[in-house]
């Protein structure tokens, strides 16, 4: 045994003491609260999505003529296909929920302030990648919702000033939604986005490690506890609970599939997934250019929020303007979402 360890140590010249030291990184005690463990969950879900996603590609066929039939095949014929697709779908929903919760936690503890602005921006980029993942993902099913979401979503890009039209043609692989569109979305979903997501997660975590966990404002405690094994255990518990939850959810609510896409015929009641409800409501309320500009400004504001916060603090110190502005936008988003969900 000892000889084997030595053999490995000679081939991989890393001091195990250094690794152990790194793993025992001291964390402030406020991290023991569960709401501070939310950041790790999307990463674990990304892992689950990666595994189930690869499994799905074994049967999925990314062509307009066969996509719907192949998803149907996975859902109803392939052994345990419903289970794999159900876990993939459930994990994607949960990923959006946990990313949102993590963002809300970071926002209201103001963990994005100097010197962690860049990490907040990386986080917003990860959030946008997550949404693009979800959007391209449900486009692949090729039922009515997929088809019309793709049409509307890509048409929105055309309304982006200056680069809109060429960007639209580039994304769709032609001026309208055509067979190229599906292969491009598939490519994004299984190639480009996973690569970007992985790189960004690594950068996001590296910055967290380099800066250390952000101190909690107003918490005088100085004690720490080690990342490994204490904090790691918490993350593992969350991971297992998520898996149990997902498996049970899929058992009771196995995945279904909508009507096959028919270009040229939008069904009477059509809506995007719940996480696009705020944008959807906003688009119904405004003209297209205001709709698009509003969305662009919202995302830009989100990106630059740490700097906006700092500017607000300079204008009116100690007035908690950040909280009013943040809460106002947060409530607006919630109201738009509920409005769309319950009033339609």
């Amino acid at each position: 045994m000892r000889r084997l360890t030595r053999w490995i140590e000679e081939r991989i010249p890393v001091d195990s003491e250094v690794v152990r030291e790194q793993l025992r990184e001291p964390l402030p005690v406020h991290m023991k609260s569960w709401i501070f463990c939310l950041g790790g969950t999307p990463a674990m879900l990304f892992g689950i999505l990666g595994i189930t996603g690869i499994l799905l590609t074994f049967y999925y066929v990314p062509s307009p003529a066969q996509a719907y039939a192949s998803v149907s095949n996975i859902t109803f014929k392939v052994r345990m296909g419903w289970f794999v697709r159900g876990i993939h779908q459930g994990a994607s929903q949960l990923m959006i929920v946990t990313v949102l919760l993590h963002m809300i936690r970071v926002f209201f503890t103001r963990a994005y302030r100097k010197p962690r602005e860049l990490n907040w921006m990386l986080g917003v980029a990860l959030f946008l990648i997550t949404l693009t993942f979800a959007f391209t993902g449900y486009s692949l099913v090729y039922d009515q919702l997929s088809y019309w979401a793709t049409t509307v979503g890509t048409n929105m890009i055309a309304a982006v000033p200056l680069i809109g039209q060429p960007l639209l043609i580039l994304l769709r692989g032609g001026p309208d939604v055509n067979p190229n569109t599906l292969s491009r979305f598939y490519d994004f979903h299984i190639g480009v986005l996973p690569m970007m997501m992985t790189l960004f997660i690594v950068a996001h975590l590296a910055l967290v490690r380099l800066h250390g966990v952000a101190p909690l404002p107003g918490d005088p405690r100085r004690e720490t506890y080690p990342f490994f094994p204490d904090h790691m255990l918490r993350e593992v518990i969350i991971g297992l609970l998520i898996l149990i939850g997902l498996v049970n959810f899929v058992m009771f609510f196995p995945p279904t599939i909508g009507e096959q896409a028919t270009p040229g015929n939008t069904p009477g009641h059509i809506r995007p997934e719940w996480y696009f409800f705020p944008t959807y409501r906003w688009l119904k309320l405004t003209s297209l250019s205001i709709g698009i500009w509003g969305s662009i400004l919202f995302v830009a504001g989100l990106f630059l929020w740490p700097f906006i916060d700092a500017a607000l603090e300079r204008i009116a110190p100690q007035r908690h303007l950040w909280m009013f502005v943040g809460t106002a936008f947060f409530l607006m988003t919630i109201v738009f979402m509920l409005w769309e969900a319950f009033v339609g």
């Binding site: 019309w148 049409t151 509307v152 048409n155 929105m156 040229g264 015929n265 939008t266 069904p267 009477g268 009641h269 059509i270 959807y280 688009l283 119904k284 297209l288």
Partner: peptide
Amino acid sequence: SAVCTHLGCTVQWRPEEKKFVCPCHQ
């Protein structure tokens, strides 16, 4: 053309209202 000029869904004729309605964004 039945393509809505907003974001490209297909509009439908509603005989009771005598109007064309786009199901996507009303």
